[in-house]
């Protein structure tokens, strides 16, 4: 009994540590105090109004989402092609390419960032949208490969041959047999790519055009470089909305998964 009590207490203590900062921001997002920790007067939605009327913040949010979406699509296409290509290559080629695929995963982000910046400067397109997209694709493509390859391993090898024997061209067999079979892997790779792209600061700051901001670079400028713009308090509202969206997403995902399980379907 005591043991159980201690265990529960411990878990809730760690959870409190993990959520205290986020909840503090959420509470103070309903107050127009300039400083967190000094409650002024009463509850208000001023910061939310400020968030949605601030051009700078709305552009930043849109930039972040568009960048994540476009780079993840590119990265998913590239990674899927790579995973399929590698899987059916000779062993030596496959091993070599697999090793190179691991490099961006294990490498320090700052090294990836400077190498991307170096090469983009070398090819003379400097820090533009192109370099930014390339940087985010480098950050995310290995995770697409890591998610697609296991699905290729699970697939029945004879399916592709059967399609060819039944008269499909290799291209048809690729799109009608292989891709549908590995689709769950492609999808989870895409989701991880989006998550990583939304989260990234270091590669973004080394490859982005000077005036372009994502949520990460905006928040970093405000909190680490002390570039206090008038919109900084509204970031509390933004982080509360992000938190709420993530909670809703996870609940929906769990409900869907549970429903699937109840129907006896596979995940």
């Amino acid at each position: 009994m005591v043991k159980k009590f201690i265990q529960r207490g411990y878990i809730w203590l760690v959870i409190a540590f993990l959520y205290a900062p986020i909840i503090l921001l959420a509470v103070y997002s309903f107050n127009n105090s300039q400083v967190v920790g000094q409650w002024s007067n009463e509850w208000s939605f001023d910061l939310y109004k400020q968030l949605f009327t601030s051009n700078e913040l709305m552009t930043t949010v849109a930039n972040t989402l568009i960048l994540a979406f476009v780079s993840s699509i590119l990265s998913t296409v590239l990674g899927t092609m790579g995973a399929i290509g590698m899987f059916y290559s000779r062993k030596r080629v496959r091993n070599a390419m697999n090793t190179v695929t691991q490099i961006p995963v294990i490498n320090a982000e700052i090294v990836t960032a400077i190498s991307t910046a170096l090469i983009c400067t070398m090819f003379a397109f400097g820090r533009t949208y192109v370099s930014l997209l390339i940087g985010h694709v480098i950050l995310t493509f290995p995770f697409v490969v890591l998610n697609v390859t296991p699905k290729l391993k699970q697939m029945d090898k004879n399916l592709y041959e059967a399609a060819l024997d039944l008269g499909a061209t290799p291209t048809q067999a690729l799109f009608k047999v292989i891709i549908p079979q590995v689709l769950p892997g492609i999808f989870s790779g895409f989701l991880i790519a989006i998550t990583l792209s939304l989260d990234d600061y270091i590669i973004t700051t080394f490859t982005k055009p000077a005036t372009f901001n994502t949520i990460s670079t905006f928040v970093f400028d405000a909190y680490a470089k002390g570039g206090r713009s008038a919109d900084v308090p509204a970031l509390r509202a933004l982080s509360t909305i992000i938190f709420a969206v993530i909670i809703i997403m996870l609940i929906v995902k769990n409900v869907l998964a549970n429903n699937g399980a109840k129907k006896g379907g596979k995940r």
Partner: peptide, 9 residues
């Protein structure tokens, strides 16, 4: 949740 935003919090 965004890493930079969490650190700021």
């Amino acid at each position: 949740i965004n890493f930079v935003l969490r650190t700021a919090a």
